[in-house]
């Protein structure tokens, strides 16, 4: 194993221990979307739902779970920066991507478990194939993780102070979720709409799930690849401007 991957392994193990002790955060990133889903969807419980119906009615809440957890990865690292942790520990590791990759692996581990449990619960209450649903949710996670990571990375390049970080993260979440809801209610955009796939991760998640239901690669693939490249570029540029020093006192 190269020095880099040894460091990633050590940090992943360390952050897993930290995350295990901080399960309260899941109330915010998992319980909250699930509560809203139950409040909105309880009329459909224990009635057969098609996968298309699942996508229209339920997937936005699952997109919320995926997006909020990945956003929290960046918020956590920004928090470490503001505490001076990043500046000190950056002098220890090969390069700062060790933190990002390790935190991401911990988050992905959590999301695999969470989506598995959500898939089981949804399979039961919406009378869908549990295995098929879980595999599709994991597939969506695999397709959307990197683009959403690119979407969230600017948080690490912006001079956001410790005290304002929570407000910024909450604002981003609200803008993305309310923005999705408003656009979905007012317009009927095609899944191939590049701007929506880039600007709103909820659309990207929904469209990837739709792709895994219909297998209509020809229609969505160009938009997916364009979104992947555009958000990847956002991520790369943000990483190049990564701030290691706390904003306070700059």
């Amino acid at each position: 194993m190269s020095k880099y991957w040894v460091q990633v392994w050590l940090y992943t193990r360390y952050f897993f221990k930290v995350a295990w002790d901080n399960l309260g955060l899941l109330l915010y990133t998992v319980a909250l979307p699930l509560v809203f889903m139950v409040l909105n969807m309880h009329a459909l419980f224990f009635k057969p739902l098609t996968l298309s119906g699942f996508m229209s009615n339920v997937m936005a809440f699952i997109a919320w779970i995926i997006f909020s957890n990945l956003l929290m990865v960046m918020a956590d690292i920004a928090m470490l920066r503001e505490q001076g942790y990043l500046k000190q520990y950056a002098s220890l590791v090969v390069n700062p991507t060790v933190f990002i990759v390790s935190k991401l692996l911990v988050c992905l581990g959590q999301l695999v478990v969470i989506l598995g449990l959500v898939g089981i619960a949804c399979g039961i209450v919406f009378q869908l194939s549990i295995v098929g649903l879980i595999l599709r949710l994991w597939g969506v996670l695999a397709l959307t993780t990197l683009p959403i990571l690119g979407y969230c990375l600017p948080l690490l390049s912006l001079p956001v102070r410790y005290k304002t970080l929570n407000a910024v993260v909450n604002s981003i979440l609200i803008i993305v979720m309310v923005g999705f809801s408003a656009v979905a209610n007012l317009f009927n955009f095609s899944v191939a709409n590049l701007a929506l796939n880039v600007l709103n991760p909820v659309y990207l998640v929904l469209n990837c799930f739709n792709l895994l239901i219909n297998g209509n690669w020809g229609h969505f693939l160009p938009a997916y690849l364009a979104a992947f490249i555009a958000l990847g570029l956002v991520g790369v540029i943000s990483y190049r401007h990564l701030k290691l020093l706390p904003t306070e006192g700059l």
């Binding site: 360390y14 221990k17 930290v18 002790d21 901080n22 470490l80 505490q83 001076g84 942790y85 500046k87 000190q88 002098s91 220890l92």
Partner: peptide, 14 residues
């Protein structure tokens, strides 16, 4: 180089 901060961040559960 190696840097040691004046206020070292602590993680109580560790």
């Amino acid at each position: 180089t190696l840097y040691l901060n004046q206020k070292l961040p602590m993680l109580p559960a560790i």
